[in-house]
Amino acid sequence: MTRPTFTFDDLKEILREGAGADPETLAETTLDATFGDLGFESLALLETLGRIERQYDLALDDAAFTGATTPRALIALVNEQLNGAAA
């Protein structure tokens, strides 16, 4: 049985839906840029986390909000939780 995984493309889709990120911004988005540098302010990130929680049935704590400052860190955190939940 395959475990669900959360990919960079999944994150981009949520950023598009939730924060209204335009395709150009997303095309230039790299895994290691900070969300702040990419133009996603704190509420955009809060909305993004909320959508990830709903879609993947997770409960991300405040540490996710403060700690995951880049797409790479956030993706890793979500996958860690998903794997933990499936184990």
């Binding site: 598009r16 939730g18 924060a19 209204g20 990120a21 335009d22 133009g39 955009a44 909305e47």
Partner: peptide, 8 residues
């Protein structure tokens, strides 16, 4: 208006 403003 750009997407980020439409979302909010």
């Amino acid at each position: 208006l750009p997407g980020p403003l439409l979302a909010q």
